[in-house]
Amino acid sequence: MKVTEEHNQRMAKMTFASVYPHYLTKVEKKGRTKAELLQVIEWLTGYNEADLQKLIEAGVSFETFFQQARLNANAHLIKGVICGYRIEEIDNALTQQVRFLDKLVDELAKGRKMEKILREEKK
């Protein structure tokens, strides 16, 4: 699927606070925990639980959320299809970052091992 400019704008304006409860519900329905979700979000963005709570309370958009984030150096290793979009082919950086987060949450909900989700190197 081709990402449109309207889609990119919609993603930028969406608030993290509006999506986070859906992430939490999705992973908990599949037997995963809030702590695991927080671990995944912190790995990608650098935000800890207190940071996330402040961002939720402030009602920040995904644009602000990712502008202030410290994106993990291995985020580029997140590949595949999410919501009909091939992540590595998305040319808008913000939309790609939102889809990175969606993909990680999806992998967590599907029961993937944490070391695989966090793209850890094998030792």
Rank of each mutant, 00 (worst) to 15 (best):
V40H: 10
D51Q: 10
V27R: 00
P21L: 09
E5Q: 04
K34A: 12
T45R: 05
N8M: 12
V40L: 14
A17D: 09
E49S: 11
Y23K: 12
M1A: 09
R32F: 01
Y23S: 02
Q9P: 06
M1G: 13
L37V: 10
L24T: 08
G46F: 10
K34V: 10
R10L: 07
L38D: 03
A12Q: 01
V3S: 06
K34T: 08
K26Q: 11
N48T: 04
M1E: 12
T15V: 11
R32M: 01
H22V: 10
G46M: 06
G46C: 00
E5Y: 01
T45E: 02
V3G: 04
L52Y: 13
K2I: 12
T15S: 14
K29S: 14
Y23L: 02
S18C: 15
K34D: 11
K13L: 06
T4I: 03
E6I: 11
T25P: 02
G31W: 02
Y47H: 07
N8A: 10
N8Y: 06
E36G: 12
L24P: 02
A35Q: 07
K34Q: 13
T33M: 10
M1T: 15
A35C: 05
Y23M: 03
K30N: 12
M14R: 13
P21N: 15
Y47D: 10
H22Q: 14
V27Q: 00
G31K: 12
G31Y: 09
G46L: 09
H22S: 12
F16T: 08
T25I: 03
K2W: 02
A35K: 13
G46H: 05
Q9D: 11
R10W: 13
T45P: 04
Y23V: 06
K29T: 07
T15K: 11
A35V: 03
D51S: 08
A12G: 04
N48L: 09
G31H: 07
K2F: 03
H22I: 15
V3L: 11
K13I: 00
E49T: 13
A12P: 04
K13D: 02
A12H: 01
Q39W: 06
K13R: 14
